[in-house]
Design a protein around this nucleic acid. Structure first.
Lengths: 197, 197, 197, 197
DNA sequence: CATGAATGAGATTTCATTCAT
DNA sequence: GATGAATGAAATCTCATTCAT
C-alpha cells in the first residue's frame, strides 16, 4: 500500500465526519474508525487534529481550481463559460459545502497566526483568482466586457453570490437559478430605457 | 447594577474573545475573566456556551434592520439608497466578522439539529430581507429596476458580494469599493454596444 | 474545606501509589481514585504529573530535615546523638523508602534541567547538611571529633551507609545494626595496637 | 557483521540515551535512531524495553568484579588495596551513574515482582561482595583489621559512601577524596586521646 | 535478519457545567 | 444573585510492541 493511500483514506474519512460536525465536535476516534485505521496512524500523517483540518481545507481548494480551469479551457461563448463556471462552482459548493465551511473557517482565523499557513492560503487563493481571470480575460478579448470592470469586483460578485446562494439552500432546491445570477452580473438590474436614445 | 448590565458585560467580553478565535478555542474561563465575573455567573444569563454565542450573534441584528429601514425611508435616489444600504451592511459585517464566520461555520450543522436556532436565524434573515425589499420596491416604483428581476437574486448578489468582500478583507483596506459593486449590480459588466449605434 | 486540604489529600494518595510503582507506571486515575477527588482536581493543585511528583519529593525532604534537627537539639552525648540521628534517618528511610527513591530520582536527573527545581533541590540539600553539621559541631566542641575531618566525608559515610543498608534490606530484618555503623564511623576498622605505643 | 555487533550497537546507544533521562522518558524510537537500526531490530535482541534496560544495567558488572579481583590479587598494602578498590568502584559508579540511578529507582519495585531480575541482581551483588571480602580477609590476615568487624558493615560503609559520594557529584569534581573516605573507614573520626597520654 | 508503518490501549490533560457556600 | 472549586466525561496524543514485507 502506497504511503499516500493511508493519508487519502484518512482525509476522505475526515471529510465525511466534518460534514455535519463542527471542529470541536469531531473526534479523532470517529475519524480513525471511519477510515479503518488505528488512531495512532493519523498521527503518522498529520501533526495534530488542526494540521489534518488544514490539509483537508487545502485539498478542497485544489479541486476547486481544477474545476474552474477546465471551464476556462473549454470552447464556448463568454456567457456560457460564465454559466459553466458558476455551475461548476455551485456544484462544488453544494457537494462539498462542509469543505468550504472548513476553508472559510481556516482562511479567516489562521490568517492571523501561523505565517506558513497564511502563505499557503494566499497562494491557493491567487491560484483560484488566476483561473477565474482567464475567463474574464476571454470575455474582454471578445469585447463582451466593460473595460472599467475591476476583476476583483467580478470575483466578489460571482463567487460571493454563489456561495451565499448555496449557503441559503437548505435542501429544498434553489430559489434562484445560476442563469439569473449570471444575467444580473452581465446586464445589471437597471432597466435600459431604449426609448431615451 | 441592573440585571442586564452583567449580561451586557459578558456579551461584550465574549465579543472580544471570539474576535480571533474559533468557537472551540474560546474558553468560558477567558470570557469570565475578561468580563470580571465568576464563571458560574455566565450560567445565570445563558443556558450554555452555545446559547451565549448565539445570543451574541443575534445581538445587533435588530440594529442593522433599523439602519436599513432608515435608509429605505430616506429621501434619496435609488442608487444612493443602495449605496447607503450596502455601507450599512458592510459596516455590520466588518464589525461582526468573527461572529458571522462562526455562524457560517455552525449554520450548516445547526440547521440539521436545533430547530429553535434555525428558526431564529430564519426569522432574522426574513426581517432583513423585508427591509431590503423596501428599497428594491422603491427602485421598481421609480422605474429604475427591471421587471423581471427576482428579489432573491438581488439579495444574493448584494449581500453575498458584500459578505465575500468583507471576508477577504484582511485588514489592509478593501480592494473593491461599495460603489463598484453597486455599479455592476445596476449596470452589469457587459458593454452595451447598442446605445453606441 | 481549606485549600491545602485537597492538596494534602492528593499528595498523601500519590505517595501511596508511588510506593510500589515507577513513575511511568503510576496513573493519575489511580491517584485521583485513591484521593477520592476528580481527576481534574489534581490539575487545580499541580501543573502536571511531573510537578506533583516534585512537590512530593520536596515534601519528603522537609520531613527529613525536621527529624535530624530534633536530634541535634536533644541533650545527649555525641555518640548517642549520632545513634539517634542514624536511627531517625534509618526509620525515615525505611518508612518512606519510595519517597527517597523519588527524591533520588528527582535530584539526579532534574539537576540538569529546570533551574528552578535545581535551586530548590540545592536549598533543601543545604538545609539537611546544616542540620547534620550541628551534630558534628557538637562532637567537635566536646573534643570527640578529629580536627582534620571534612564534614562532607562524615555526611557521605553516615548517610551513604544508612541509605545503602536500607536499600539492601528487603524486609527480613537488617543484617547490620546502626550501632555497628556508628562504631566503625567513630573508631575505624583498624586494630589500634596499644602495645605499639 | 556478527550477531553481537548489533546488540552492542543498541546497548551503547541506549547507554547514551539513558544518561540523562528517566526510564519513562527514554523512547525506543530514540534508541533505534541513535543506534542506526530499525525499531523492530531492538526486539530481535531484547524481549522488551525493561529487558534491554536490565541487560544494559548488568553490562559491565562482570568487568567490575574482575577489576576488584585484580586489586585483591595485587601485591600491595591493605590500605592501598582499599584505595585501589574504591577507585575501581568509584569509576564504575561514575560511568554508570544514570543506570545505577534507574536501577535504584526500579529495584524496590522490581524486588516485589519479577523474581528473575531480583535473582540476577542478588547474584551480581554476591559476586562483588565475594571479591571485596577477599580484600578484607587480606586485611584481617595482616592483622590490620579489628576482629569484631562484620564484613557487611564494611561493605555498607565503603560501597554506600562511594555511591552516595558519586550521586552527589554533579560534575564539578568531587568534594571528598577516596583517600579521605578510606582514612575514616580505617581510623574512625574519633580523636584517640589515649595514644597521646 | 532487518525494518518501520501500523496499531490501539491507555496516558495526560482540558473544560463546560454544576452546586455548595 | 454571585462565585469558583470541584468534577469527570471525553478529548488529544504517545509509544511499546507487532508483523508483513
Amino acid at each position: 500500500m502506497a504511503k499516500t493511500d493511508k493519508r487519502e483514506l484518512i482525509l476522505r474519512a475526515a471529510e465525511k465526519i466534518f460534514k455535519d460536525k463542527r471542529f470541536h465536535e469531531v473526534k479523532l476516534d470517529d475519524i480513525a474508525a471511519a477510515a479503518h485505521v488505528g488512531k495512532g496512524t493519523i498521527y503518522l500523517y498529520f501533526k495534530s487534529k488542526e494540521d489534518m483540518f488544514f490539509q483537508l481545507a487545502m485539498d478542497g481548494f485544489d479541486e476547486l481550481c481544477i474545476l474552474v480551469h477546465a471551464v476556462a479551457e473549454s470552447d464556448k461563448l463568454f456567457r456560457d463559460k460564465l454559466i459553466d463556471m458558476c455551475t461548476a462552482l455551485s456544484n462544488f459548493f453544494s457537494e462539498r459545502r462542509p469543505l468550504l465551511r472548513i476553508i472559510g473557517e481556516a482562511q479567516d482565523v489562521l490568517n492571523k497566526r501561523d505565517s506558513d499557513i497564511r502563505q499557503l492560503l494566499m497562494k491557493n487563493h491567487q491560484k483560484l483568482i488566476k483561473e477565474v481571470n482567464q475567463i474574464l480575460d476571454f470575455g474582454r478579448e471578445q469585447g463582451d466586457l466593460r473595460d472599467d470592470i475591476d476583476y476583483n469586483v467580478a470575483h466578489f460578485i460571482l463567487i460571493g453570490s454563489l456561495q451565499f446562494r448555496d449557503r441559503h439552500n437548505s435542501g429544498e432546491g434553489f430559489s434562484v437559478s445560476i442563469e439569473q445570477i449570471v444575467d444580473v452580473f452581465l446586464n445589471g438590474v437597471i432597466l435600459h430605457r431604449k426609448e431615451d436614445s
